[in-house]
């Protein structure tokens, strides 16, 4: 049984195409991640699925309801957390929560069980105005408000953007617990490293889905050999590798460079670098990361941001 079914959705604003022929399904009870940078079309897709925006063509359904015909039914069963912080900054934590509870004809008490884990972290600040909370706390409050009516599906549009790595990790731990309670979660993020927390992911760029799979599935499909390389002068290493003509791609990756060689082997590379005066050279073949896959797909879809 699928919670979300999207078939061939297109959406344009004036002459820019925001979404081109998007199709995917989200199974009941899974965490599905939409991964891509700002401007990829994630928010547009979320707004179409949450019945806030009309698509140009294609069809989309949430829990069997059509996003246009049955919008009222959908609005009753979804929890939505928009990308921008969308709570009342001048109201306190408690007041925000109570307000959203009444909007859905329910009370905080009746749903306390579901939000308890998250709310206990907010409780010390319950009289503080939402606008004065730190980034991580704001996200937790927004999640509480989206959960207050026990939705069947959660739509979380970039919940972790601008949030520090520790708060992000905590946020994802919460999502895992919600999943265990049977809630389907569609979440978008520009942070590629969050992919491993999703059951399945879609990589989205420039309004198109480049690939949909489990994380392992996507990584297995990486078509080339990938090497991590480092030396004592990384800046020079980067420019030397780009000039040498032996590599297809060279990208900086934390303390290493990731490169895909043109030929199947990169045996000559170490000698070449020594010749160039590099010291402390380390080369090893590695498994691709989501980010490697994303960049590889980007180049094949011809949709890098430069030309």
């Amino acid at each position: 049984m699928n919670s979300i079914e999207v078939k061939n959705i297109c959406k344009s604003y004036k002459d820019t195409k925001a979404l081109e022929d998007i199709s995917f399904e989200v199974k009941k009870g899974e965490i599905f991640g939409l991964i891509g940078p700002d401007g990829a079309g994630k928010t547009t897709l979320f707004r179409i699925l949450t019945t806030l925006l009309l698509k140009d063509s294609g069809s989309a359904g949430v829990e069997g309801f059509d996003v246009e015909k049955d919008y009222k039914a959908i609005r009753r069963i979804i929890g939505y957390m928009p990308g921008r912080f969308s709570l009342y900054q001048d109201l306190s934590v408690e007041e925000n929560l109570n307000f959203f509870a009444t909007v859905f004809d329910t009370t905080v008490k009746a749903n306390y069980e579901l939000i308890k884990d998250i709310y206990v972290q907010l409780e010390p600040f319950k009289t503080r105005r939402a606008g004065k909370l730190s980034g991580g706390m704001k996200q937790k409050l927004a999640l509480c408000c989206a959960l207050i009516h026990q939705p069947e599906i959660l739509f979380l549009d970039e919940p972790t953007t601008g949030v520090d790595p520790v708060s992000r990790k905590e946020f994802w731990e919460m999502l895992k617990k919600l999943k265990d309670k049977g809630i389907t979660i569609l979440v978008s993020t520009p942070y590629m490293d969050e992919a491993f927390l999703c059951d399945r992911i879609a990589l989205i760029q420039s309004g198109r889905i480049m690939d949909i799979n489990t994380l392992e599935g996507i990584i297995l499909k990486f078509p080339k050999k990938l090497y991590a390389i480092k030396s004592d002068n990384m800046y020079k290493l980067n420019s030397d590798l780009k000039e040498c003509g032996m590599c297809d791609t060279v990208y900086i990756f934390g303390e290493y460079l990731h490169l895909t060689p043109k030929s199947s082997e990169c045996s000559g590379l170490e000698d070449y670098l020594s010749e160039k005066g590099h010291t402390g050279i380390e080369i090893s073949q590695i498994k691709a990361t989501v980010e490697d896959c994303f960049m590889d797909l980007m180049s094949r879809h011809g949709s890098t941001n430069n030309e």
Partner: peptide
């Protein structure tokens, strides 16, 4: 936070600009 939400390729190009400026 200059690179929040930027795609991975551009993010790296951005850092190359930073390196160049530092250089």
């Amino acid at each position: 936070e200059p690179t929040g939400g930027v795609d991975p390729v551009t993010r790296r190009q951005f850092w190359e600009l930073i390196y160049k400026a530092a250089d």
